[in-house]
């Protein structure tokens, strides 16, 4: 597979190029922006759906609920002398529930980050462009007409364009 790398000095130019390419029928999933800093444009040209919040909530419920269940059953099966206070009480173990719920949220966020960012995932090796100190690089994967694409990217304001092959 061939990749086209186009360097733009301004994020806005890259965003406009992405809109043009999408209008021409190139899927946004075939495009990627690279930069040394986050590209902060509103709306984001390659906005992706995220389930990080959901992952955090589900993980929090799982870990916090599991820990609470452990505490409940351990206290029920091996009761301590509580001086007349209830064996199980949310007041007595609410802190444990809260902290383990938060620990679950932390784990969920970190796991979702690794998944959504693609870090540590065994995907095929995509060539990574050399990043300029200023500006962004737009990568387009598997375009049928790379020469024509390169030309249109230059016309859209790219300061440099190159065609590279995959590393694998």
């Amino acid at each position: 597979m061939e990749y086209v790398h186009a360097e733009f000095s301004r994020g806005e130019d890259a965003a406009a190029a992405i809109r043009d390419l999408a209008a021409a029928g190139i899927s946004k999933s075939a495009m990627e922006l690279y930069s040394l800093r986050p590209v902060e444009l509103d709306p984001a040209p390659l906005a992706r759906r995220s389930r990080m919040s959901l992952a955090a909530v589900l993980s929090a419920i799982t870990v916090g609920g599991g820990a609470t269940a452990l505490v409940y059953w351990a206290q029920r099966d091996y009761p301590l002398i509580t001086g007349g206070m209830p064996i199980n009480s949310g007041w007595a173990t609410g802190v444990v529930t809260f902290e383990t719920t938060m620990a679950g949220a932390v784990m969920g966020i970190f796991a979702a980050l690794l998944w959504e960012s693609g870090l540590l995932r065994g995907r095929k090796r995509v060539p990574v462009p050399v990043l300029p100190d200023r500006g962004v690089v737009l990568q387009v994967a598997g375009a049928p007409d790379t020469a024509g694409l390169a030309e249109s990217l230059r016309a859209a304001g790219a300061v440099a364009v190159e065609v590279v092959g995959a590393e694998d």
């Binding site: 990627e32 690279y34 590209v39 984001a44 040209p45 390659l46 995220s50 990080m52 980050l113 540590l120």
Partner: peptide, 16 residues
């Protein structure tokens, strides 16, 4: 962790 500076990674990082 194999950070490349892709937009996908920046978005996930900032969200996290």
């Amino acid at each position: 962790l194999g950070w490349t500076g892709s937009d996908r990674q920046w978005q996930a990082l900032e969200r996290s």
